[in-house]
Simulated assay, not measured.
Amino acid sequence: MTFKKKTFNALYSIFAIFSCLALGKLCSHVAPILPSSLYGLIIFTLTLHFRIFNADHIKSSVVWCLKHMGVCFVPAGVGIMNHFELIKQFGIAIVAITFVTTFLLLTVVGLHYQRFAVDDE
């Protein structure tokens, strides 16, 4: 693939993704049911399905992102493997604590948001 074609595909991908995210932001303002990034993902999927954006131009960028995505997850996996005995011994407790604290955090943040969002309007 030539440099010109790679550059075009990268710019095309950036345009496609950011335009879908911008439309997702707009949808989130109109119908604040889902987060804007989720609306953007849905719009991106639909534009690829209905061939509004050419998937062949986006493919190389997606492959590159998937190829390098492991960098985000490898350090956590190595950390877990270094302490496998602790995970084996306390795994259920760790999972339970993670779920309970996540639920509590989301509940507290949601309640505070409702309280202060109603006060601001």
Rank of each mutant, 00 (worst) to 15 (best):
G91R: 07
C20P: 01
F18E: 01
A93G: 08
F84A: 05
I94K: 03
W64N: 04
L38C: 12
G24Q: 01
I58D: 00
W64V: 13
L38I: 12
G24Y: 02
T45I: 12
L23W: 02
L21F: 04
V30R: 10
S61Q: 06
I52R: 08
S19A: 04
E85R: 02
G40T: 03
T47C: 03
F103M: 11
D56S: 15
L23G: 00
L38P: 04
L26T: 02
S28A: 11
G70C: 09
H29Y: 14
S37Y: 07
I97K: 10
A31C: 13
L26Q: 00
M69S: 15
H68M: 09
C27S: 09
I43T: 02
K59P: 04
I97C: 11
I97S: 07
S36I: 08
F18I: 12
H29I: 12
R51K: 10
S60V: 09
A93N: 08
T101E: 05
C65H: 09
K25T: 06
F103N: 13
T101M: 08
G24K: 01
Y39E: 00
I58S: 01
C27K: 06
V30K: 15
I42Y: 05
L34F: 11
V95D: 03
H57S: 12
I43L: 03
E85G: 02
F18N: 03
P35V: 11
L23N: 00
A22Y: 09
T98A: 05
I33N: 12
C20L: 03
D56A: 10
P35L: 13
G24A: 04
A22M: 07
F90H: 11
N82E: 06
D56M: 14
T98S: 05
F50T: 14
L46V: 13
H83T: 11
I33Q: 15
L66W: 14
V62D: 01
L26M: 05
L86Q: 10
F73L: 09
A22S: 06
F44W: 03
C27N: 06
F44N: 00
C65T: 14
S19H: 03
P32R: 11
A22C: 10
S36Y: 11
G40I: 02
I87P: 00
V71P: 06
G40V: 02
I80D: 00
L46P: 02
C20G: 00
A55T: 13
I58G: 01
G24I: 04
S28E: 05
M69K: 13
F53D: 00
Q89I: 13
K88P: 00
T47A: 03
G77H: 07
T47M: 03
I80L: 01
A31L: 08
M81I: 12
F103T: 14
V95P: 01
C72D: 05
C20A: 04
S28R: 14
G91M: 09
V63I: 13
